[in-house]
Design a protein around this nucleic acid. Sequence first.
DNA 1: CTGAAAGCGCTTACAG
DNA 2: CTGAAAGCGCTTACAG
Lengths: 341, 341
Amino acid sequence: MRVTLKDIANAAGVSMMTVSNVVNGNHARVSAETVDRVQRIVAELGYVPSASARSLAARTSRLVGLLVPAADEDSLTLSPHNTAILGQIERELRKRGYHLLLRGIADPAEVPEALRSWSLDGAILLGFLDEEIDRLSRGALGRVPVLAIDSYSGNPLTTGVRSDDFTGARLATTHLIALGHRAILFAGPAFTDVGVVHERFRGFRAALADAAIEWDESLVETANTTHEDGVALGARLPGSHPHATAVFATADILAIGVMEGLARAGVPVPAAVSVVGFDDLDLSAYVTPKLTTVAQDLAGKAANAVDLLLAAVRHGKRPSAAVTLDVRLVERESTARVPAG
Amino acid sequence: MRVTLKDIANAAGVSMMTVSNVVNGNHARVSAETVDRVQRIVAELGYVPSASARSLAARTSRLVGLLVPAADEDSLTLSPHNTAILGQIERELRKRGYHLLLRGIADPAEVPEALRSWSLDGAILLGFLDEEIDRLSRGALGRVPVLAIDSYSGNPLTTGVRSDDFTGARLATTHLIALGHRAILFAGPAFTDVGVVHERFRGFRAALADAAIEWDESLVETANTTHEDGVALGARLPGSHPHATAVFATADILAIGVMEGLARAGVPVPAAVSVVGFDDLDLSAYVTPKLTTVAQDLAGKAANAVDLLLAAVRHGKRPSAAVTLDVRLVERESTARVPAG
DNA sequence: CTGAAAGCGCTTACAG
DNA sequence: CTGAAAGCGCTTACAG
């Protein structure tokens, strides 16, 4: 059977409480020699504390949930971007003695159940829509600290971390303008007046304004953030926007699709049309031409998310404003000077 | 404070045990009207059972661990292949009312602790070396069912699921032979006489033997499964293997690197050298030329892994032999007839 | 520095 | 069909 605290206590001739103190590192409350003896016996008998018993008694689980949207019957679809963050979050948590419960959420209404069932000490929301986050209330979350990644929701209960999307888009667009481009197409998913895509659109517009380029409303194309939609968009570009000489796509995967679509339509990239993406996926350096894009600090996002969350868990300190991480432009081969004429 | 079983019992005027039966679906033991009343009150009060209390009392946690190697300070590096599997496993588990604890393992010696700490009902090993799996003993695993993905270890404690690596490699190589290639380079990580890479090597050799092609021992190159190593390998290929007209790489990411290396060295793919990969990552259809490769049934792997594991958890039925999933060749643009001369 | 008691929120036999 | 009691393996005040 399982080795318990009581077994160790009996073998060491001390009380359970003393063993508990040793195991939990409260060495101040135990004499040095007792600590030694108990630790030796723990190792000898291979004692592993029961996390569920501990959670139940201590009202703290050392468990953090990573909540990811997942249509009911669907697999968790983790983008490369979210996968990288997931890996980093697990590491940061592990370094601090916490564990990760990964859970797909089919409906935001499941969030409260997810938090309470395992008595999560905290949770990170990855990939939710701002409107979904907006609806999360104190009643739903209770006292459990929750933090959203990449959200612009004003919900103070979920204030978290994100990249400087505005500046990233501005950087990318300014780069195109510096190359002489004037008719630049904005390609991305449909957006409202708040959120990541909206911020990137604002950054895009700001760069145009900086250069005093008049804004042509027709230079926006809506597409899902998939390679497939990018291909379709790129293929019809010569017909729909014959004057456009550059495309700023809100995601690498979309940008890569656009490049392929353009290639299929016989439009050389970057000779005839330049393309810039956003994310700097590994993939972006593997395609032809290599994609110029905006790099995010993924490791920083994950580390900050965990730091903020655990600060809230341990000291009840909630961030008052979202942490914004710097981005940088990575120039590769998909952009060039605007063609003459 | 938290709503407990007792609160529901009080409100409904029944015993805790009756509520427990209703909540757990043992409706046979409770009258229909009691079931109704209790369920109404549960919904009204927003009762969520405590998973830790349940684990402690019932000795079953409904928690399954996904254990992934992770160097101590390192992030979990999830390959696209493993990410897809992870997503599918979460979904299969969720559909069955189980939860997923994702945990990086710095040293295989941590496995027992991982299993016991959270009283995992079972665990799936993803990405471990066969030698590490070989060393896992009954003493380490206890009575917890554990299952390895992509392992050829003979350890009966971890019998799991994998792809038909032998056939995949044979298919890929036979395809190259059919195109007239004779001098085919095998590129992959160093391997021992057991394991995924060894199986792929065996399949490669079998295809050559089928076609009565004499085996040239020098036609093997060792490289890590990274894009970078692929580039290096491809770039030096004209010098190191001037006669080779095709490369079979044991992973797409490596094959894609090889294609880039060849391109840098001025060798056209597939006109001068054909390249085949293994995995069929999304990425493989995005690069230029699109990669011909061997596709694995990732969803099938995940579903089978979860099915087998839960059968072991619930009925104590351990698989006697590993489940092997079919693979298929996906012909794209990176292979062509051997150049004349 | 050390300990006895109560309790965390459930489930499991055992009765009736 | 329903319930009272014991116990799962810990931690938390409270004493000493």
